[in-house]
Computed example of a mutant assay.
Amino acid sequence: MDKKYFALYLLPSRPDFAQTMTDEERAIMMKHVGYWTDLMNKGKVVAFGPVLDPKEVYGLGIIAVDSEQEVKDFITNDPAAKINRYEYFPMKAVVPAK
């Protein structure tokens, strides 16, 4: 089955979230990094990380999945989804030939 690609945006709960995280929020975000690193190691994530937009730092991920339901499941199980929100969109990704 051909992979489907999606761009995921993790949008902060407030504009200065990256600069003003509480210790509890920082702990959640560290779990978030571990969660997405594990998915990357399983071949589901092409890239992820914070985008340092001067207006507002946000997260961006590019994922390769079999179905849109997988995207929804990734979001539901992400610890950061409890304190931030996600948007995602299908992507016509150009990736290296295998």
Results as ranks from 00 to 15, higher is better:
residue 88 Y to P: 04
residue 24 E to M: 01
residue 58 Y to L: 12
residue 19 Q to T: 07
residue 72 K to W: 00
residue 14 R to E: 11
residue 58 Y to I: 08
residue 12 P to H: 06
residue 90 P to I: 03
residue 95 V to D: 04
residue 92 K to A: 10
residue 61 G to E: 13
residue 30 M to F: 06
residue 98 K to L: 09
residue 59 G to T: 09
residue 87 E to K: 11
residue 91 M to G: 00
residue 93 A to C: 05
residue 84 N to C: 15
residue 76 T to K: 15
residue 78 D to Y: 06
residue 54 P to F: 14
residue 81 A to C: 03
residue 53 D to N: 15
residue 5 Y to P: 01
residue 8 L to H: 09
residue 50 P to C: 08
residue 3 K to I: 05
residue 91 M to W: 14
residue 87 E to Q: 06
residue 16 D to L: 11
residue 14 R to A: 08
residue 71 V to L: 01
residue 42 K to N: 01
residue 23 D to C: 01
residue 29 M to V: 08
residue 70 E to P: 02
residue 7 A to Q: 07
residue 64 A to R: 15
residue 91 M to N: 07
residue 10 L to H: 06
residue 79 P to D: 00
residue 30 M to Y: 03
residue 19 Q to D: 07
residue 13 S to A: 14
residue 34 G to D: 13
residue 31 K to G: 00
residue 50 P to M: 12
residue 13 S to M: 04
residue 3 K to N: 07
residue 76 T to N: 05
residue 50 P to H: 08
residue 51 V to K: 08
residue 65 V to F: 03
residue 15 P to Q: 12
residue 69 Q to E: 15
residue 8 L to K: 11
residue 29 M to C: 11
residue 66 D to Y: 07
residue 69 Q to S: 08
residue 13 S to G: 12
residue 21 M to T: 14
residue 53 D to I: 15
residue 59 G to R: 11
residue 54 P to H: 13
residue 16 D to P: 00
residue 79 P to A: 03
